[in-house]
Design a protein around this nucleic acid. Structure first.
Length: 570
RNA sequence: GCCCCCGUAGCUCAAAGGAUAGAGCGCCUGACUUCGAAUCAGUAGGUUGCAGGUUCGAGUCCUGCCGGGGGCACCA
């Protein structure tokens, strides 16, 4: 079934056509118009500004246009009332009987509720995190991690076959410094003279890696250069990064290694192809990319006069590789520091004749770490950062009474998903430390736990979902109470929220929807007693249990899309 | 100097060019003998950084300015 919103747009377009055919409206091309959920409940469930948008084209008063559209648009079974209001808005209210019946639809869809057929049969790839293995993941990386994983979840929900990919640079100078840093600590541990590199990594983890090597090798590496230390450190850090990401609920399908682009010859082929097409040339001993051919201010160096490629070359080769793997849609999650870089990559891909429109980039701003009211600048090199592991430890809470533990990924993911990626974020460590149960994260989860509690209680009292008289088979058309209707309508919005979030690559809409849904459920809970021992209320109890069951499905689904747990008790 | 993002309630943040700018936290008031009070109902809190412009209509689009962040490499 198409989205109600899209279906309404069709009906309205048809209304315009019919009115034009009847000469009630003059001929004009219907403008782009929106069908949205009005802020005010008295304005119905959906509203459109089509008449206002058409006023100039039709040379008529908006209200008169609205009148003509309303009189000529076909009705559907889900439409209850159509009204003209204000300056010329058309307000549409859903039919209560139809709404009530939709509980059945949601129950039948189960865990697939909210899924759409946008990318069915297509392959998508999301590249995110992609931090170089020079240290543990810090808080600054967390936003990209959560954004990428949630966008991947959303793409899966709309039908794409999704590959989650982590690209890491293990060929550059930073890795060499890492190796030298570890080597220096190692030498110190086995009592050999060593000088720590001036620009070395100062974190405690360098000592840990060195101690690991001492355990494994004793002093056998005393005469080794930095290379084996770099190899061992890289492996150690990857283990660490992988574990940290797993705690966030993130699992990658592909760990793409920059080094492979060299060994496979992809780098060489990329330069060659650019040369052949006239987009690469030699100057001052370096190889340049003709970025100006694609609107850039100046050309960029691909290979330095020292013979080393700049980051641009492997990045272009990598994206060519992605496209050759046949992805229909490629999403990159970058921090704001890469904002001016990716146009070069896109240009490079385009220069080689590939369809760069398949590539989308989500840029997120930086996390501004605040402690004691002051900004903390993060730097891996100077070991001035808060690790994601430490953060996850700090926000994992166990409720003293129930003994239920809510993993740290829940508040972390939720918090990051209440921000638009465009908006810079202040992350106050003092506030994180004094986590309270009043956090909206727990508000949403509490609604789910409360639902589970009702269903448990129902079970105890003999109300079963299946079997003879099971509530899953109940007739829900009696659910006409305003709180029941409001709850069902809110659940019906999920597919639209998913569609919006995918289209705008803005997963933060999920968290606001989740809070809204939880709130609507809590209001229903207050107004509508579910379990009744009155024999005359049997049908109502069964129908409401079906509604509660559907609410659980939708809440769990949203939490799942956000990568959070849906606790049955807390 | 040039380019990009941001500026909305005390704080953290939402808001397809639409109707009276919304949540959460915090403040204040009330509600547990009843399916979970991690809840609910209510109060207070705003010149959407400033000044112009476009539009029937601007937090949203355009111009200028102020403030914060990011970039402007033969670093990644």
């Amino acid at each position: 079934m198409p989205l109600i919103r899209d279906s309404l747009i069709e009906l309205i377009r048809e209304g315009i056509h019919q009115a034009q055919a009847a000469n009630v409206l003059p001929d004009f091309e219907p403008p782009d118009f929106v069908v949205e959920h009005p802020k005010q409940a008295t304005h119905g469930d959906y509203a459109t500004n089509v008449a206002l948008q058409s006023a100039r084209l039709a040379r008529m008063a908006p209200r008169a246009i609205a009148q003509a559209i309303v009189e000529h648009m076909p009705l559907a079974d889900y439409i209850g009332r159509v009204e003209i209001a204000g300056a010329g808005f058309i307000n549409i209210t859903l039919a209560p009987e139809w709404v009530a019946q939709q509980v059945e639809t949601i129950q039948a869809a189960g865990a697939t509720w909210g899924n759409l057929d946008i990318g069915t049969g297509q392959k998508a790839q999301v590249e995110f995190v992609s931090a170089n293995p020079t240290g543990p993941l810090h808080i600054g990386r967390t936003w990209g991690a959560v954004l990428g994983d949630t966008i991947a979840n959303l793409l899966e929900a709309v039908g794409y076959k999704v590959t989650r990919e982590y690209y890491f640079n293990n060929a550059g100078r930073q890795m060499q410094i890492l190796g030298k840093s570890v080597r220096a600590r190692y030498m110190e541990l086995i009592g050999k003279p060593a000088t720590f590199p001036e620009d070395g990594y100062q974190g405690e983890y360098i000592w840990e890696i060195a101690r690991t090597i001492v355990q494994e090798q004793g002093d056998a590496w005393a005469n080794e250069g930095w290379r084996p230390f770099k190899e061992r450190a890289e492996a150690w850090l990857f283990e660490d990064i992988r574990n940290t990401l797993a705690r966030l609920g993130i699992h990658f399908d592909v760990w793409f290694n920059e080094h492979d682009l060299y060994t496979s010859g992809a780098i060489e082929r990329t330069v060659q192809a650019l040369r052949e097409r006239g987009y690469a040339y030699d100057k001052d001993g370096a190889v340049w990319f003709r970025a100006t051919a694609f609107g850039a201010e100046k050309d960029r160096v691909l290979i330095k006069s020292t013979g080393e490629p700049t980051y641009r070359l492997p990045d272009i080769a990598y994206h060519v590789n992605k496209l050759e793997r046949g992805f229909d849609r490629i999403v990159n999650i970058f921090g704001a520091d890469h904002k001016d870089e990716y146009p070069d990559v896109i240009a490079g891909v385009r220069a080689l004749g590939y369809d760069a429109d398949r590539i989308q980039v989500v840029i997120h701003q930086f996390i501004n770490l605040v402690r004691g009211g002051r900004q903390v600048r993060m730097s891996t090199r100077r070991a001035n950062y808060v690790t994601l592991d430490d953060l996850l430890d700090a926000v994992t809470i166990t409720h003293p009474e129930s003994g239920v533990t809510i993993p740290g990924k829940d508040p972390v993911r939720f918090m990051l998903l209440t921000r638009s990626p465009d908006s810079p974020m202040n992350f106050d460590l003092d506030l994180v430390a004094q986590q309270t149960p009043e956090n909206p994260v727990y508000y949403v989860q509490y609604a789910h736990a409360r639902i589970c509690s009702i269903l448990r209680k129902a079970e105890e009292e003999g109300w079963h979902p299946t079997g003879p008289d099971g509530w899953e088979t109940s007739d829900t058309t009696i659910l006409t109470h305003p709180a029941e209707q409001a709850l069902i309508k809110k659940m019906l919005e999920l597919p639209e929220v998913v569609e919006n979030a995918v289209q705008k690559l803005s997963p933060h809409q999920l968290s606001f929807y989740a809070m809204d849904l939880a709130s609507t459920f809590h209001t229903f809970y207050r107004d509508c007693r579910v379990l009744s021992s009155d024999p005359g209320e049997k049908d109502r109890t069964r129908a409401r249990l079906k509604l509660v069951g559907a609410s659980r499905i939708v809440l769990a689904r949203v939490l799942g899309l956000m990568g959070m747990t849906a606790p049955e008790r807390m």
